[in-house]
Design a protein around this nucleic acid. Structure first.
Lengths: 202, 202, 202, 202
DNA sequence: GATGAATGAGGCTTCATTCAT
DNA sequence: GATGAATGAAGCCTCATTCAT
């Protein structure tokens, strides 16, 4: 019984499909993406995809969650290293820039789900957005506890940080800026946030 | 021959189609939106749309430009009123919040085109993004000339302002916040930007 | 406005589709029948069928009802002519034989729906069976009123008549008998029924 | 090598598959029935079925023959008991009613093959129909030899008997009648047949 | 110019069958 | 012999687009 090997094989295939799906979904969006093409590019038969995912929608959601997990992991890792608030913000910013560069498919499809109109995935996308906010809010609270910053409305502040990192990086990428060019703004952005959150009323 | 009246009539119909199209595209996205339904809701025949727009894609692009124009007009209006940099930023922020509330269809479809994955509209979306940046950059340069702020990289700064206004409002809307709740953050955001752009290095 | 002509045209096309559908459904059954082929044989485009029928199932049901109506009309016509009970039974029998010969597609598809296993159409098929029984029961009651026959359980008697006509003809056809050969049994069958229904207890 | 045990095992599995197949085919018909589901319900692997039957069609035919054999056995048993023609007819009728009740899956699938449209099985179905007719004809001839009845065309008479028994029971079942209610008609039906076959011309 | 009936390419999905283990 | 993962043919249906009226 090569059960464990089979299980590993199965998981490997699943991940492989998810990767190819991310490529296509990132390239064309949910509707234009073609299941047959995804299968072909994954080197498997058309029907095989349905052994791993119930349907196109389920594949998309699984991919979305997989991406979210990977991204959140990267974000958490970037924020895990201790340091001043300013340093952590810079690392967060650069982490986004790196994700946008190295795993741009995922970054695009994730952003698209978050900000695209496809209502079919809005509920899921909102959930993911809340996860992001939560991670950032945690850092804000830590820093506040340490007296580095002072903010009354943590959620609003977290939203600002998110907009200034994730959305900023996305827009910059859309405008054709390189990862390097984007990262050079890390310090500025971080200082901007810090400045805003240390003023009397923030 | 009432040539001019005909021309007015034609333009009125065109605008009417664009409005109904915006509703559908905002509701369902480009792919899921149904041309037949748009025609029906516009009270015209299926074929008539093709007398005004070459195809679905052209209709979408025309709608996108129409929306962009309307939004840019609103933004320019908000920034036209003179005042301190802080005041203008607050007005810009609230203008976005108002657009997101009162013309949410347009706001959604525009954001979707900007950040959605459909590569088919990426070129156009980038153009629109540059327009936004340009409007904001203009204000930044004016303020810099007046000595209110100091920033080395105007485009980066404009991108930050955009992220902190447009993207912030979009995310906040996604999270279910009301226009009022969003607007309450205007002062904070504006101060944050101002703080960041008056520091030594910005 | 050629509204009436259009309406006639539409109805003609509808009937045309129903006829071709009957051919295919009779030949292959519901599942094996191919919508594309039906369209092709009807000389129309694939999608056109869906302008007339919501889906394959709806097409099948419409065809079934159309056939049932045609057959019931033929049955009613055969029974409308006055005469002795024996004569009317003979005409009923021959009417079935003729239907089985001249409109064998319809006869087959109708029988199949009635006795086939496809549960999806069982409810409708049962309705049709009741219609048949009702028509026969009416004749039985008339004849009973005239004192020609005497039967306690009209539904059971009607079922016998139906079995001895419709089912008999179907079986005979399956066995390869000609319409003529089948019709020659009309007198015998009719006498059999008459004999059974005039005995003391019937 | 326990060759015989193996052979018995194989035959047992074969029968087991046939029983499960009958359930599914009766429930859904040939096309809608799912080979995978049959395998699952039989507690064997998908591929295993193909070690016992060449393909879906062969499985269906084997099942059909198996059912026919079982039913014919029941019919022969019912007719084997000596008695008057009337008594034997009543027993035949009740035998059908019982089969329809106790082995309704088989009864349904058999009737469906007999009267359903799927031409793919028409040849086989006709063969089965002839078997039925033959069994009944045998009884008719015996009774004729004994002088109980008199009929010129034995096949036509057998077909009538079949219609009045098998088809009658099927229709009655479709209309929702219970086995008991159906069996109550046995005497009437038998007398009807007897009356018809003892008249001068039958 | 306006219409909407007709079209048919295209895509998701199912499932009988195969074959490596 | 038994298995079930993999396959891909096949089919229903949608909808952007055309064109005769």
């Amino acid at each position: 019984m090569p059960k464990i090997v089979d299980e590993q094989m199965r998981e490997a295939t699943r991940q492989h499909i998810l990767r190819e799906a991310a490529r296509e979904f990132a390239r064309l969006g949910f509707d234009q993406a073609n299941i047959n093409l995804i299968a072909e590019q994954a080197g498997i038969g058309k029907g095989t995809i349905y052994l791993y995912f119930e349907n196109k929608r389920a594949l998309f959601l699984a991919m979305l969650r997989s991406i979210a997990q990977r991204q959140l992991t990267a974000i958490r890792a970037a924020l895990a290293i201790k340091g001043t608030f300013q340093q952590r913000l810079e690392r967060l910013f650069c982490a986004f820039a790196q994700l946008a560069e190295e795993d741009s498919d995922s970054f695009n499809v994730y952003m698209s789900a978050l900000y695209g109109v496809n209502r079919a995935f809005q509920a899921e996308a909102t959930k993911l957005l809340r996860d992001y906010i939560a991670v950032i809010a945690l850092v804000l609270e830590e820093s506040q506890a340490r007296g580095e910053i002072s903010c009354q409305n943590v959620e609003a502040a977290a939203l600002m940080v998110l907009s200034l990192t994730e959305s900023y990086v996305l827009s910059a990428k859309v405008l054709g800026q390189s990862e390097q060019a984007i990262c050079q703004q890390a310090e500025l952005v971080a200082r901007l946030v810090l400045g805003g959150l240390t003023s009397s009323k923030g």
